[in-house]
């Protein structure tokens, strides 16, 4: 069954949206990452400037369900570019969609902060190459602002 998306305008349609950013591995890799593939778009590689987005298709949306956390996001497909800005450092990186994710609904309500600056809900996952351009990989999770590029 194809789940219908909410009818209200997506939060990211007219302005940047705040949410949590993490990182994930894809493509050829070592360790626990060695079993991951090249992502929903078939192009994902840890060493490339790419990201996963929760609304790349109906099937993707049925998995990630950001609406369960009260967040509506625009449908954007493989290759679409977003700019992610780390709220802790102000550093930003522009990446393109290569996979479906993160699974937002499994972390509903989670919040990350830098001092008094906070963001809730997991809205984007970056590859290690992209995340390490704006934050140390050892931070694992950071508040961010996401916009079209």
């Amino acid at each position: 069954m194809v789940r219908r998306q909410p009818t209200e305008p997506p939060a990211d349609l007219y302005a940047a949206v705040r949410g949590e950013v993490s990182w994930f591995c894809c493509g050829t890799a070592w360790g626990p990452c060695s079993t991951t593939g090249k992502g929903a778009c078939g192009t994902c590689n840890s060493g490339s400037l790419q990201h996963a987005w929760p609304n790349t298709s109906n099937a993707c949306w049925d998995i990630t369900r950001p609406d369960r956390c009260g967040v509506s996001l625009s449908r954007r497909t493989c290759g679409f570019r977003h700019r992610t800005t780390a709220l802790c450092s102000g550093a930003s990186v522009v990446t393109s969609i290569a996979d479906c994710g993160p699974q937002t609904d499994l972390f509903c309500g989670e919040q990350s902060c830098c001092g008094s600056t906070c963001a809730s809900n997991r809205l984007i996952d970056l590859t290690p190459a992209a995340y390490s351009a704006i934050a140390s990989l050892s931070t694992g999770l950071r508040p961010a602002e996401i916009d079209t590029a």
């Binding site: 840890s46 990446t95 393109s96 190459a129 351009a133």
Partner: peptide
């Protein structure tokens, strides 16, 4: 680096 492209300043 272009979005989507391998980053030469990164290695794994």
């Amino acid at each position: 680096v272009d979005p989507g492209a391998p980053d030469p300043n990164f290695a794994e």
